[in-house]
Amino acid sequence: MSAVEEQGRAFMPVSRIIADGYGGDFGPGSQCRVTRVTLQGGLDIVRWQSTFEQPVEMPLHDDSERIHFSFTNLLKGKASCSFRDGRRQRRYVIDQGTGSISYGRSRNGLYHQQGEIDNITVMIHPELLTQWELEIDPTLYNALACDHCFLDGHRSGEMSATAHQLSNALTYAPGQPRSSLWLYGQSVTLVSLFLEARRSVDCACRLSPIDRQRLQHARERLLADLGKAPSLSELARESGLSQPKLTRGFRQLFLNSVYGVFQQARMTQARSRLLEGDESVMRVASDLGYANASHFATAFRKQFGINPSLLKQGGRSTSLAPSKLS
């Protein structure tokens, strides 16, 4: 398929990027693989795994005609995407352990990455989403009606666990293939968790720019040491917010409680370290503030649906490992 030309720049069609087995050549020190499973007309699961030692910018043209419910399981480095909003280019930072809802019929944009990323996306046609009869909040409904949106910051432990299970199912595991019915059920679950997360909070558009900045600062301070969370009073004082405004703002902007954001980041780091295979479960638990290994295992299982010891034994860095679906 030929690229779409705009203002002298060649935009690559998304349909080409998400082709199963795609592994574009991005130069030395780069690896990229896409695993795609079509479950029915208008519904696909796509896993994107890539490592770019040098910064990469990809001009993309969205010809997919799909709403993308996307969750980033792993990010070691930086990633972002940008779209033209009127006269300016608006940039969205991609974070590990968070999800976004994106829809851009025939929209052009830029994808930026340096480092490693592992992302799972459920792509669904708007008509099929309507047939599922899920409750869609007004903000998302209006954005979809305009044929373009990018809503980020979706987080929850259940969402993370479901996204990891889908990603693992798209990685070859001898003797343990997942059926199309199971994949369909998990895809519906992931989409519904995105919509549930949106219903559970007030609209973030009510936050002033200064409050957004203060909340971002509070989140950075919160995650500076994953072995020990600061107290709410300390976090509120340092960020210049009252405790009620801090806790309410976290739910509005980050779709989670203050401790929920901390806990999810802590478990995500634990998973990354265990997949590297060089540290014991107890060492990782201790570094992240757990004196009791069983308490750590319970929290980890709640987040990802698997015991940390089993992940360490069977998952030693599945990143960019050979992939197959039976």
Rank of each mutant, 00 (worst) to 15 (best):
F262D: 02
G115A: 12
T162M: 09
F26M: 05
A265I: 01
T38M: 10
S102R: 15
S233L: 15
V261S: 11
S294K: 11
L60R: 08
V93P: 00
P230L: 14
C149L: 14
A143R: 10
S257H: 06
R88L: 14
A169F: 11
Y290A: 00
D63M: 05
D25T: 04
G153L: 04
R221F: 07
S167T: 13
H217C: 12
S100C: 14
T130I: 06
P138L: 05
G249L: 04
D147T: 10
N108K: 06
G185P: 01
H217F: 15
R273L: 13
E238Y: 02
N142P: 00
Q252K: 09
L195F: 12
T98F: 09
T72H: 08
E6A: 11
A143S: 15
G21E: 08
L60W: 03
A297E: 10
T51P: 00
M123R: 10
M1G: 13
S231R: 12
Y172C: 07
G97L: 13
F254W: 13
L39E: 03
T268L: 14
V188N: 00
L43W: 02
V201D: 01
A291F: 00
G260T: 08
W182D: 12
Q264E: 13
T35N: 09
E116H: 13
S80C: 10
G109S: 08
R16S: 11
S192P: 06
R9L: 15
E238R: 11
E57H: 04
